[in-house]
Design a protein around this nucleic acid. Structure first.
Length: 742
DNA sequence: GACCTGCTGCGGCGTG
């Protein structure tokens, strides 16, 4: 379902179909011509009423491809009500787009209003009084409108022509995407016709998933897709290997004066090769970002050169982050950002010479996104360096460590990058939590509702359609239980908020479907540095490494949770809560097996990485793992599935349910306290797999999302089973593979 | 052995 072929000769040129004021603006901007993606966008939007996905690289002009034709239509509109809604996952992106779109809006006499928590209230009041034009908003602010402006929201959004969803790929997975899907469906119901939806994205793996998300609830025929020609730049790639020193326990902590840890040597290489240009370094965790930024700052100090390496992560203050982003974008001073995932989304960062990845990738979607953020100049190759740190192998080490799985995963990830593989969206674990959130919000919006209507509005053909009527009833019953008190039912059957429901919904924390932790705020000389988790026990005199520097605490405000700090020569890195590793997809785990099985040494490996890959393969052969998937180590048995996180987790639950202690790891599970023969017998037994919902009680924690504490066990168990059902054929195949192996 | 995102309404104050 791509866009229609080039138009017949008598059809007007897309440019000539735009509003005269927009054409004038384009000429004044000095554009020679519209880009292909914009021509296609104009045709698709003006010729067709269907939903649309626009896919093109960052800075390729997607926003204009959507808004030039949409504003052309909106300028002639006579209906009252806001004409266009733009939804973004980030406030910073709204501010960025506002600057571009407000100029066009002014020319067309269409108000353009930013609507997020930090946006000025005056413009919001103005559009409430006179609803028209374009509103740029976050999902949470849409939620707030439904809850706090229930009477006015239909006047605002009841006659929309179109809803543009930016960074669409960020909403295809996760609780927030489900939240937005529900909010859009609620907006659809405010008016007589469903507004068309237009999704924008730079990195889509699965176009059909994106089109399906966008066209949910469409009454006439699916959606269209326009995409830019993806000119594949040359990719220059290196994978570099490093081995930790023998007795290094805390590799990520603040560098000691010896400075021989693998991370220190990674810092040496980055310092020598990235200095003098703009680069992005993705280091995985906030702790590693801090450790690496600290090492790079020290190298600048020792070399007596200006600092040009700076940390960027979600716990740093907006001030520090924006300063760094603007420095990257300006491009006048050489700048390298050492970041977590914070720089994967968001504003255009300008031209970047190279991207580095510290640690083997676990997600191809993420790796692709990172490469896509590198905004190269036309004609220059994309440069990617992957740095791998492996353990020193002691004589008595775990044989699994001998497989050098990080090096192997890096090679496997590169192979899948070349094969253009991107993980498809996975079933969303937090669906019940988001359903309860939307249930409470809908009860407020409707001023009391009946159960059957709530089920119809939220679930039937909707984003929560995976819940059965019985499960939904269970959710209602639990929410109305005396201990939860979220809902109450009037004698006539009308469902209202209960006292705790009122408290919850009126709290400032309610709008987002994701949880947030309590944190210390770090201040120095009146300037905000950022936040660290409250689990860090800090008092006056404590030393802490943060924002790429080291500090001493000189003041504590326990009530406001503020720490006053001053620069200090030393400090330990704070703890950031870590739960579990990012999941690995089946395809990546399977590719790792393939990498270990063949003998080819890719040229993009440096000498150390080649040696590590060789060692891994040698261990793989020596341990007989090409044919056997059992590996006994003292009282443990490793079962090597070579499958992804989802399959290994289910396998671990199965083994636990059968009575043995078991934990999942990256390429299989480890069974404790049984012999290989016993484990084999057990696998034969569980190959006749018990029903999944009976297994759910063996899952370590079913309560994972924000409102799960209000949900009944039976619902959480049933939903766990439902979202894992698609993996069961693979689980059965895995058990067969294990049993068939030597 | 991980990361990220978001936030109302109102009273009180200062300023033009």
């Amino acid at each position: 379902m791509t866009s229609s072929p080039p138009s017949v000769s008598e059809a007007p040129h897309p440019f000539d179909r735009l509003h005269p004021e927009i054409r004038r603006w384009i000429r004044e901007e000095g554009w020679d011509e519209l880009r292909a993606i914009q021509d296609q966008g104009i045709r698709a939007i003006l010729d067709d009423k269907r939903d649309l996905v626009i896919a093109a690289a960052t800075a390729a002009g997607k926003t204009e491809a959507a808004f030039l034709p949409l504003l052309t239509q909106a300028a002639d509109r006579t209906r009252t009500g806001v004409a266009l809604l733009y939804v973004s996952p980030l406030k910073a992106l709204i501010n960025d787009q506002y600057r571009r779109l407000a100029i066009l809006g002014e020319r067309l006499d269409l108000p353009v209003v930013r609507w997020h928590g930090d946006a000025p209230a005056s413009a919001k009041r103005a559009v409430l009084r006179d609803p028209r034009g374009l509103v740029l908003i976050t999902p949470e602010s849409i939620e707030a409108l439904f809850l706090r402006r229930t009477e006015e929201v239909a006047r605002l959004f009841g006659a929309l022509d179109a809803i543009v969803i930016d960074e669409l790929h960020a909403f295809l997975q996760g609780a927030r995407g489900l939240h937005l899907a529900s909010l859009l469906r609620r907006i659809d119901r405010l008016g007589l016709t469903r507004p068309r939806r237009i999704g924008l994205s730079a990195t889509l793996g699965d176009f059909s998933a994106a089109e399906a998300w966008v066209s949910a609830g469409a009454t006439h025929g699916g959606s269209g897709l326009v995409m830019a020609d993806q000119d594949q730049p040359e990719l220059k790639l290196q994978v570099r290997g490093y081995i930790e020193p023998p007795d290094d326990d805390g590799p990520d902590d603040v560098e000691s004066d010896g400075g021989e840890s693998a991370l220190s040597r990674v810092a040496d290489h980055l310092f020598a090769n990235l200095r003098g240009s703009n680069n992005l370094v993705f280091a995985g965790s906030r702790r590693t970002v801090e450790a690496l930024a600290d090492r790079l700052r020290r190298r600048s100090e020792h070399a007596n050169v200006p600092e040009e390496f700076f940390p960027h992560h979600g716990s740093l203050s907006t001030d520090l982050r924006e300063t760094l982003e603007q420095r990257l974008k300006a491009g006048t001073l050489p700048t390298t950002a050492v970041a977590t995932t914070t720089l994967e989304l968001g504003i255009d960062l300008g031209s970047v010479k190279s991207v580095a990845q510290v640690g083997a990738p676990r997600s191809l979607a993420s790796l692709r996104q990172r490469l896509g953020r590198s905004g190269r100049r036309a004609g220059t190759p994309a440069i990617l360096r992957i740095y791998i740190r492996e353990k020193y192998l002691a004589a008595d080490c775990d044989p699994l460590d001998r497989l050098r799985l990080d090096t192997v995963r890096a090679v496997a990830a590169v192979r899948l990058l070349v094969a253009k593989f991107i993980e498809p969206p996975a079933p969303e674990p937090s669906l019940p939590t988001v359903a309860l959130h939307q249930l409470l919000s809908t009860v407020v919006q409707q001023g009391g509702s009946r159960a059957d209507r709530l089920y119809r509005d939220l679930c039937a053909d909707g984003p929560f359609g995976l819940l059965s009527k019985a499960e939904f009833a269970g959710m209602l019953k639990a929410a109305a239980s005396p201990e939860n008190g979220l809902l109450e039912q009037c004698p006539e059957g009308l469902i209202m908020l209960g006292p705790r429901g009122e408290l919850l919904v009126n709290g400032r924390d309610f709008y987002a479907v994701f949880d947030s932790d309590e944190e210390w705020r770090l201040i120095t000389g009146g300037r905000a540095l950022g936040t660290i988790p409250i689990v860090n026990a800090l008092g006056i005199g404590s030393l802490v490494g943060f924002a790429g520097r080291r500090w001493r605490v000189v003041g504590v405000d326990d009530r406001a949770k503020v720490l006053d700090v001053v620069p200090h020569p030393s400090g330990k890195l704070p703890k950031f809560d870590r739960l579990s590793a990012e999941p690995v997809h089946d395809r990546l785990a399977a590719e790792m097996f393939a990498v270990l099985s063949d003998g080819n040494i890719p040229r993009y490996l440096d000498r150390q990485a080649s040696a590590l890959l060789g060692e891994g393969r040698e261990a793989f052969r020596a341990l007989g793992l090409a044919s056997s998937r059992f590996l006994s180590v003292e009282s443990d048995v490793h079962l090597l599935s070579w499958r992804g996180t989802a399959v290994n987790s289910i396998l671990a639950v199965l083994v636990t349910a059968a009575g043995l202690e078991c934990d999942a790891h990256d390429v299989g599970v480890t069974v404790t306290g049984a012999s290989a023969a016993e484990v084999r017998a057990l696998l034969m037994h569980i190959s006749k797999c018990p029903p999944l919902d009976e297994l759910a009680s063996f899952v370590k924690s079913l309560r994972i999302a924000k409102f799960d504490k209000f949900l009944p066990d039976a619902l959480l168990a049933a939903y766990w089973a439902r979202r894992n059902e698609p993996f069961m054929p693979l689980v059965s195949a895995t058990i067969q593979d294990l049993l068939n192996s030597g």
